[in-house]
Design a protein around this nucleic acid. Structure first.
Lengths: 149, 149
DNA sequence: TATTGTTATACTCTATAACTATA
DNA sequence: TATAGTTATAGAGTATAACAATA
């Protein structure tokens, strides 16, 4: 069998680009339906995994630390997050979701119908396979660097 | 064997969020190294697949049509794209990459080292599998709608 | 001396609404 | 009447540089 035609890196990168575009579009529409910008929605999504310092949040969102002040200010004004001083290092402020923030973060994910319907096309085995592959490609293995970036 | 533990949708969505966040970060840094914003870089990447009308470009980038004017203006001012009237419908302007625009688009992709190194961890069979799975999830099957949106 | 978060600034992105030209 | 692209506007995102508080 010549079942496995080599898929070159350029083609995979191109497909990742298309996939990201589709996912990001779905996400942007879902966030907008909650009256949130894409950046605000992304911040909520990241914080859904747990509290984070301002700077760690900026690193995860790939933006300068100075941007986080305004983004968190607006989320805090709407009661979706709050700042909390870190007793171990008084320079640091941890940001965490309020219950309302958790509700909105979950609502955004629930509204991403296009992506969910795409995942629904996969069998259990395929879902397991996709999970493993994405982890291999995108989740850095411990041993490289345990902290932020 | 209980080899296949069910991977639920929420977990896959979470992993997609992390994976595409990593891809987006890699892309943003690569675009910045060419003195381009993420939106400008995205426009170049989309146009690398071929010319597109202003409105189709806006739809692909999930932004309002009015935004494309400024984005394309700046890219045109730098000689990376140019507008071309559509002879069939004089309302439409097609946007296409200049040779320099093609060079920059390729340079951005080449600089996405983190993503490429992630893909390098996969065997040929795994690359083929990832390709198939991403297409299944994110590339709409013909029969739904052939046009833009 | 280095780091965290903030502020000030300038530029870019974004959606909304209104406009022109064309279909 | 509807659509493609543009313009004007206001709010949000973005990087840079400079700052105060803390380590």
């Amino acid at each position: 069998m010549t079942g496995t035609a080599r898929v070159d890196t350029a083609r995979l990168m191109e497909l990742l680009s298309v996939s990201l575009g589709a996912y990001y579009g779905d996400f942007t529409v879902a966030a907008a339906s909650e009256n949130l910008t894409a950046s605000q929605g992304k911040a909520l999504t990241v914080l859904r995994r747990g509290p984070a310092a301002m700077r760690a949040l900026a690193n995860t969102l790939t933006c300068d630390a100075s941007n986080m002040t305004g983004i968190v200010d607006r989320l805090e004004k709407r009661g979706l997050v709050r700042r909390e001083p870190n007793p171990c290092d008084r320079r640091i402020k941890n940001v965490l979701l309020t219950p309302e923030g958790e509700r909105v973060a979950d609502a955004i994910r629930a509204k991403m119908r296009t992506t969910q319907e795409g995942l629904d096309r996969l069998s259990d085995e395929e879902r397991d396979s996709l999970h493993t592959l994405l982890e291999t490609v995108f989740v850095p293995r411990p041993g490289t660097c345990g902290d932020d970036v």
